[in-house]
């Protein structure tokens, strides 16, 4: 399912340095808004949100010297549109090895689009306990929300057309940090294209 390195890149809107700066800024904002890291926990939405969450944990440690508890969630079972597409047929593990009760949870995903993934993630999180608050951090907000959901921290606001695809590639999975806008046809052909092209992200 990986997009080969040789795939036509589309229009690159965030390169490796850009991704790094965006995450560093978001980490500062998180620490500022929460006045430190007390009772904070970070949970990334698989796949790719978990990588970003780990990087944010690292950035926050650089600022505050504290290791914020980290977890990862697969929200396939909470989707409103379960299908048999190859992308989400395999359920990955959910690992939150600490109590969410009373914590402020920083939920992390790569692309905020319709809001349906976040809706599912909120439901999933509630089944693990009762957080004091949930905040949302995304690398890219591309608009076109279908639910009343917004992000608290945004790496980059990206105006897009609904038909375009936003492709996030991260070095953990893809060997490179890069966000690109793909014309609809090319991205569909590539078969992955997180954010836009995952059928699950659309209504």
């Amino acid at each position: 399912m990986r997009v080969p390195q040789s795939a036509p890149p589309g229009r690159i809107v965030l390169d490796a340095a850009g991704v790094g700066r965006a995450l560093a800024r978001v980490a500062h904002e998180v620490v500022e808004r929460n006045k430190g890291t007390a009772d904070l926990g970070i949970i990334g939405i698989r796949s790719r949100g978990d990588h970003l969450a780990l990087r944010l944990q690292h950035e926050i440690r650089k600022l505050e010297g504290e290791n914020v508890p980290f977890g990862a969630m697969d929200i396939t079972l909470y989707r409103d549109d379960i299908t048999r597409g190859a992308d989400h047929a395999v359920i990955k593990s959910t690992e939150i090895p600490w109590e969410v009760d009373g914590k402020t949870i920083l939920l992390v995903d790569d692309v905020l689009f319709t809001g349906r993934t976040i809706r599912a993630a909120l439901d999933a999180l509630m089944d693990f306990g009762r957080p004091r608050a949930i905040q949302l951090a995304v690398l890219v907000d591309r608009g076109h929300r279908e639910l009343p959901i917004r992000a608290d921290y945004v790496g980059k606001n990206l105006p897009t057309q609904h038909s375009e695809k936003v492709q996030v590639r991260l070095r953990e999975d893809d060997g490179i940090d890069e966000v690109a806008i793909m014309p609809p046809t090319a991205a569909s052909a590539a078969g992955d294209a997180r954010g836009g092209a995952r059928p699950a992200r659309r209504a």
Partner: peptide, 8 residues
Amino acid sequence: REIKKVPT
């Protein structure tokens, strides 16, 4: 999990 139920 404590709540052993998913809405799938």
